[in-house]
Amino acid sequence: MDRNIAGVTIQVNEEGYLTNFAQWNTAIGDALAAEADLALTPRHWEVLNYLQTEFKNDSPLSIRKIGKSGVVDIKEFYQLFPTAPLKTASKIAGIPKPASCI
């Protein structure tokens, strides 16, 4: 489905995740973060950039993997993106949430 955000139209799924990463830009990231009551700092962006790089490499993400990435430890990841950090950060980064087969 289409939605308007940060002055552009993007495609998202039922849960608001971007379905086409090519449509993402930093203004969209900021706007999606604001919807999650987050103001993005340079530390947030370092983590988001890491997630996007892994996504481009088709590499599945998990909390443990992010903790071992050297980019951020798990404690800080929870501080940056509270409650369900991987889900929240994925949505802001414009990448799909981690999923199972069904």
């Binding site: 849960e15 369900a84 991987l86 949430k97 981690p98 999923a99 069904i102």
Partner: peptide, 9 residues
């Protein structure tokens, strides 16, 4: 660790 027992709509 996922968002639900089922993750696909």
């Amino acid at each position: 660790p996922l968002s639900g027992a089922f993750t696909k709509p």
